[in-house]
Structures are given as C-alpha cells and as structure tokens.
Computed example of a mutant assay.
Amino acid sequence: MAASKRKSKSDGVVYREFGNSPNADATARPIQELPPNQQQIRIQASRKGRKGKTVTEITGFQCKPDTLASISKQLKAQCGTGGTVKESTIEIQGEHKQKILEILTQLGYQAKISGG
C-alpha cells in the first residue's frame, strides 16, 4: 500500500497572521531618528562585570542601527581601539572620555561626561 505524503513548508508554521516573512515583526515600533543637536548623550567609564578592564560607555542615542554602527566605527578608529554596539549603547575599550567628548561635539551631538 502506498502511503500518501503531504508537502509541508520548511518552517513548519501552519498559520501566520501577519505577512509571509518569518523575520517580520508586526509589533515593532519604528525608530525615530533625532538630529544630533537634539540628543542628550552621556559618556562614562565603567569596570562593572568586566574583570577590572575599563570600558567607555556612550548612551542616549536615538538613531537607527546603521547610524549607530557608523558612529561606533568612527569612534573606534579615532581612539585606536576596539568596541561594540549593544542595543542603543556604544562601548569603546579603554578610558577615552575626553577624546570621545571632543569627537561627538564636533559631530554636533550634545554630550556630557557623567560619573566619576
């Protein structure tokens, strides 16, 4: 006896309410990108959870991930060190508060050094 085989989709989803793409998030809010002079940027050095290594954290960005990545790339090149982007925060390895403050003010951002 021949068994009938059903064709199934590769993702195994039976019903999807919003769109055809599995990566599309219908509930995601659009990111509002503010001009640099309207953003309040905070720069601080931190060692928490990094086994004593200092990292300069830059927070307060309200921009798209592409813009954040390009700013991060420019800061890493100017400081001559590595870093990463996590959510809306840029982390630069080492303590570079003053240098980052100068770079961001030249780019037109309202930046302040916070913390000790």
Rank of each mutant, 00 (worst) to 15 (best):
F18P: 03
K53M: 08
I31E: 03
T54P: 01
R29K: 12
R6F: 09
E33Q: 06
S8G: 09
E33A: 07
P35K: 11
K53A: 10
G52N: 06
R16N: 10
K51G: 10
E57K: 15
S8Q: 09
R47S: 11
E33S: 12
I41G: 00
N20Q: 12
Q38G: 01
L34K: 08
A28Q: 06
Y15A: 13
Q40I: 04
R42A: 15
I43V: 06
V13M: 08
G19C: 04
V13H: 01
Q40T: 07
N37L: 10
R16K: 13
S21Q: 07
K7E: 14
P22C: 03
Q38R: 12
P35W: 07
A45W: 04
V14N: 05
T56Y: 01
Q38V: 02
R50H: 13
I31C: 01
T27Q: 14
N23C: 05
S8A: 11
G19L: 06
R16G: 05
G49P: 00
K53G: 02
A45I: 02
K51A: 14
Q39S: 04
K53C: 08
I43T: 01
V55L: 09
I31W: 02
K9R: 15
P36Q: 07
K51E: 15
D11H: 05
K7N: 11
P36Y: 05
P36R: 03
E33I: 10
V55A: 08
R50M: 07
Q32Y: 09
E33R: 02
